[in-house]
Design a protein around this nucleic acid. Structure first.
Lengths: 339, 339
DNA sequence: CTGTTAGCGCGTTCAT
DNA sequence: ATGAACGCGCTAACAG
């Protein structure tokens, strides 16, 4: 920051008027004549004036900015949610600050601190896999910063959430496998602290139940669902000599790890693989043309969550009630062109 | 913003001291006694004081924040660069604001405006495919905001860049195909306004030349390299009845589109496909285990670019000379386990 | 419609 | 070592 010290005072002085008028003109206030407004805008452009949002926001005590916290931006589900958030926020004149926790509680805390210190007007977040204590979240709430969770939400009361019907997703995925003739379906699950994984597991159980297939605990493998976890899971199954003819993975990464490994050792036990993942995910469509996925409507989640958040931001005086919106996922079966 | 109106004045009043002392204590100034410092910090915590970074930054005229502009965060190359940026920035006490232009010039302009208005200390960016006029960039420079480009850079003088040796990447990719026995190699290229695509094309030409393979203009197809472009490219080739036995795609998306389509119509003309893409990209490794990629060291690029930017931010008085750093890409040939 | 005054919350002079 | 006062750049309140 060296050049560009042009302030509204400078341009006021140059025009021999008051800086308030300049401020009003720059904000397109109706309380200033067209003529002077024009004069001011011209002068401003001429002098290379640029508004200092820091000062403006400080004075107004509003930043028109919302913070977004996701585990990883590179995950296609999250980046599609972000797309929805940005579109919606932009239309309402809000800027978006994107942050990633990298699944680490420590970073998540740090991010919330920074966002709060920067006085964002609200926060949208999906919590990390490590997040089992919610002090940092409670603190944010106490500071009066509106908060909406999407997909992964903390297990505390009075929160606003935009969720996916994970029970149905798990049910559909499992049901699909059963309809394909699978009898021994393995489930790769995630940390049980996260409701999304718990719910998918419940859906899995329910689907088995309805088809009179006994639930077997050794078919459930919990991990953090990274690609290498998928590899390890499948290795473990093979080492145990467990019979399985289908896999329902609670996300795509772990499924990919598993499929890669199966390809590598030239074994192809599962008749089909269902993934609770994101259908737009390029991986899913490429890895196996016959792959079935549970489509999570990322863009719509982002849009819905943002709408809800903005509603809370704009009505902070009237104490709005908290809300949980549940969107539906869809099973998408691709054309099996290769086999 | 409703609760939490605790300021340094409040805590000063509570302790019957002056707010200056509080400010100094909170900034761990040596000019305040250990004892009072402790007293103040305790009181601050007790009262739930949170620094207002807007005010602090306004006063200091420094934000300790850098802006990052990329075409799309969902592209694995960019998200890995961002990883490198965040790690490096964090160690130096800087925050990062991530923005995506979605390959649109209009958005790119808008983003730079916002970043400048928010007084970021510097900007790291990779320009969009639409960016052929650089007024917005020149303006940012004129405002004295340090700027470093990575990967995609504008064609103007006196810029700081961290680039990849794309000529060598193109050469290596093509050479690899030739060594596999390909004689008729198609090249999917991008907008020629971007040096990266021009350079990859040059590398392609050079490799042909050294192997005495004649260059044929109809083998070069330029597009914006989205997945559907890859599909269209391959359709075009087939429609023209052009003979080809290899494809060198300037990015991974277009290659994936092409491969998908070839799979779909059960044609398998190319003996191999080389992609200039990112080796960590899950797609590349999954789509075809024998796929060869040109690895771009994203994390290192992010780190290098950030180091360079911070250097410029910190030495704004001493007029540093501009610099272009070129990192090497690597050809990675995977184990051909399937064929 | 425009000017005057005051202050957002903080950090940095000066003093003492 | 601490206090008093000013100002970063902008906008809201109140005049007129």
């Amino acid at each position: 920051m060296k050049a560009n010290k042009v302030t509204i005072h400078d341009i006021a002085k140059a025009l021999d008027i008051n800086s308030s008028t300049v401020s009003r003109a720059l904000n397109d206030s109706p309380r200033v004549t067209k003529k002077t407004k024009e004069k001011i805008l011209n002068k401003a452009k001429e002098m290379g004036y640029k508004r200092n949002l820091l000062a403006s926001n400080l004075r107004k005590n509003v930043t028109n900015t919302i913070g977004v916290v996701v585990p990883r931006i590179s995950r296609h589900f999250f980046s599609s949610v972000i797309q929805g958030i940005e579109e919606t926020a932009y239309l309402e004149g809000y800027s978006v600050i994107i942050c990633q926790s990298l699944e680490q509680l420590k970073r998540e805390k740090n991010i919330l601190e920074t966002l709060a210190a920067n006085r964002v007007d609200g926060v949208l977040m999906s919590i990390s896999m490590e997040t089992t204590n919610y002090n940092h979240i409670q603190e944010l709430k106490q500071r009066g910063i509106p908060l909406v969770f999407f997909d992964r939400h903390p297990n505390i009361s009075k929160t606003n959430n935009v969720l996916i019907n994970d029970f149905k997703g798990g049910f559909d995925a499992t049901h699909h496998l059963i309809s394909k003739g699978c009898k021994n379906i393995v489930h790769f699950s995630g940390p049980q602290e996260l409701a999304i994984y718990k719910n998918r597991l419940q859906g899995y159980k329910q689907a088995l139940k309805e088809s009179n297939i006994p639930f077997r605990n050794e078919y459930i493998i919990s991990s953090r669902l990274m690609e290498h976890d998928g590899v390890n899971n499948i290795k473990e199954l093979i080492a145990k000599n467990l019979i399985f003819d289908g896999i329902f993975s609670a996300n795509d990464l772990a499924a990919i790890g598993a499929i890669k490994y199966l390809n590598e050792i030239k074994v192809n036990i599962p008749k089909d693989v269902a993934i609770v993942g994101f259908s737009n995910e390029p991986i899913s469509t490429v890895i196996n043309p016959s792959l079935t996925t549970i489509n999570q409507p990322g863009f719509e989640i982002g849009k819905t969550a943002t709408d809800l958040l903005l509603q809370h931001i704009k009505n902070q005086h009237t104490s709005l009630t908290t809300e949980t919106i549940i969107l539906e996922s869809n099973l998408i079966e691709r054309q099996s062109s290769n086999r």
